[in-house]
Amino acid sequence: MQGITFDIAHMLAGSLVLVSFIQLYQQRLSALLNIFALHAFVLALSVAWQAYVQDAPHLYITAIIALVFKAIVIPVALRRIVIRLGIHREIENVFGVGLAMLLGICLVALSMVVMLRVTSGADPLAREDLAFALSVVLLGMLMMVTRRNAVSQVVGFMSLENGLVLAATGAKGMPLVVEISIAFSVLIAFIVIGIFLFRIRERFDTVDMQAMDRFRGEQR
């Protein structure tokens, strides 16, 4: 029984990393948003499984939040914004997808080395989870760094947060306050980003950050 629960948790967490890789691979905004929905969905599954395994019903709430907000509401909202603002569908990458994937693999390897090395005393479930969570976090950051487009950066940020949720749920017995705070932070993040996107729409003609960088405050 222990083996199967562990395997399933492992599989779900691993697929989250895989979905992160797929995100990295995406070239088009709409596809990226779809994949992000998938990402959130896998997260929800994983959290639900943890809730089941740890016998911690409050984690179901987190799973539901992840499912409803991240997998459905946000992708829909972002798609609307994309359509309404008429943002270029193509995503500009800083460097090629191949290199990004390669870097991603390196990051995953790094997080494995770091995590597997350090938590030798902890129970394996949490340890695997943490390693995957760190991978997801790092991949999310990589996406933010390699994409030039604001919407895809927001997506990168949110997949980073997914990694955090994964880590938090993996930490057995972590108080509820954390999950709620994550949910809150994502919510606030989204709201504020939304406000900003609106403002930016008012003031700037594009959400591409390069254009915004013209207003650097201090002229060279």
Partner: peptide, 17 residues
Amino acid sequence: QFLTIRSYLTLVFAALV
């Protein structure tokens, strides 16, 4: 002083890595 936000993120990211 004049980098894009993305570049700053890269710095943070690099520091972390």
